[in-house]
Amino acid sequence: MCLGIPGQIVEIRDTVRQLGLVDVAGVRREVNLACVVGDDHRIVDCIGDWVLVHVGFAMSRIDEEEARATLKILEDIGEVQENLAAMRAGDEAMQTNGTGGAS
């Protein structure tokens, strides 16, 4: 449900109607910014923001820190799995003397 795609706000088009231009992989479209502006983040502050776009509305400001943190977790899982795989490969090599590939 609810297709959404990250894009970057590159231009403010209309401060009254709260419209801006968003860029998604080089594709530009006017979007409504009402859901990503507030007292602490005025419409002019939106330029450069990464937002999640759904049906022509910027629905959420993407939290760069959180994105990085999630990727870090994924990397850590990767490292753990790599180490485990290396250990398993080592065990197998000792047992079978190096035949067989990954299963």
Binding site: L3, V24, G26, V27
Partner: peptide
């Protein structure tokens, strides 16, 4: 192309 991917992502 990136832009074609972009159009596809936006429109599903």
């Amino acid at each position: 192309r990136e832009e074609v991917k972009g159009v596809c992502e936006i429109l599903g």
